[in-house]
């Protein structure tokens, strides 16, 4: 806490905090208010007498209904959920095992390999999609969910591996040694002791991987073309921006509804699981 005069507390603590919260939350507010604002208000010029950008007195569900009735939004949600869930599971399984191996098995070049895996995460997707498009075409996976399920792990696995490696390194190795003296093989020690202890880390990696694939744009834009196959970010932007016409109401409704599942997943797991599992060792 900042000591001293009241003005110091305001200048160095309260005001920066308020600014920060405002900057973070204002886009969400804007999204919500636009979703429920009727078109008449949305396209009213700024110098009109009843111009009222931050509030509406006539909330409507028109945009949400339009989204479900006139576009394949429900389908996009299912697509996105399926793709994000499957690619997260694949990446988590690979990431957990790779992270464990890099953290605990002393094989040659383990350190260097860890760095190389991280570097692959840094290769920009805007470059990587070009060769990947060729591969997807050769395997005839274009315009199917599998195009994304198999390409998302290219950035999710390095990410999960790196995160899990750090987490496994933080687990005292005595836990595992003790399990092995107790009669567990390395595999059993991992399954019965290390993985349960690593659950908070696995969940964090899972949440982040899920969010990353939920929000992914470039691969989804490139590899999917028919409206029924699209994911939420691509569907919303490609179907609701026609030429230079922006359908702001449905766009924002799509953004709002699209962000809800992620928010639910996130808050549920944070609340229930990502609290410390401590007490095994002297802390």
């Amino acid at each position: 806490m900042i000591e001293g005069a009241v003005w110091r507390k305001w200048v160095f603590y309260n005001i920066p905090l308020i600014l920060f919260v405002f900057v973070l939350l204002f886009p969400f507010y804007w999204m919500i208010i636009t979703t429920f604002r009727p078109d008449g208000e949305l396209y009213r010029p700024w110098n009109a007498a009843n111009y009222q950008p931050f509030w509406t007195n006539n909330p409507t569900l028109d945009h949400v209904l339009y989204l479900f009735e006139e576009t394949s939004f429900g389908r996009w949600m299912l697509n996105t959920m399926f793709i994000a869930a499957v690619s997260t599971v694949i990446s988590l399984i690979c990431g957990v095992f790779a992270g464990y191996a890099l953290a605990r098995l002393n094989f040659p070049f383990a350190g260097g390999l860890g760095t190389v895996i991280f570097v692959t995460y840094l290769v920009p997707q805007t470059l990587l999609f070009i060769p990947l498009a060729e591969i997807i075409r050769n395997f005839q996976l274009g315009d199917t969910p599998w195009a994304l399920i198999l390409t998302y792990p290219t950035f999710l696995i390095p990410f999960c591996t790196w995160l899990m490696m750090g987490y496994f390194k933080a687990i005292p190795k005595e836990l595992e040694e003790c399990a092995r003296i107790d009669g567990a093989s390395r595999w059993k020690a991992m399954v019965y002791i290390i993985l349960p202890v690593a659950v908070p880390g696995i969940l964090s990696a899972g949440i982040f991987a899920f969010t990353l694939s939920w929000n992914e744009f470039i691969y989804a834009l490139v590899f999917l073309s028919s409206p029924d196959q699209k994911t939420v970010p691509v569907g919303v932007t490609s179907e609701l921006i026609r030429g230079d016409v922006f359908f702001w109401g449905p766009l924002m409704a799509g953004a709002l509804l699209g962000s809800i599942p992620v928010a639910i997943v996130y808050s549920f797991f944070v609340e229930h699981y990502v609290s410390g599992l401590t007490g095994s060792v002297k802390g």
């Binding site: 040694e177 399990a179 107790d182 599992l277 095994s280």
Partner: peptide, 20 residues
């Protein structure tokens, strides 16, 4: 012999209890 086949038990400095 791996640790499990040596018929020993060990107590660690930081206890190493299984937290879960």
């Amino acid at each position: 012999l791996p640790p499990m086949d040596r018929d020993i038990a060990m107590v660690f400095q930081n206890y190493a209890l299984y937290p879960h």
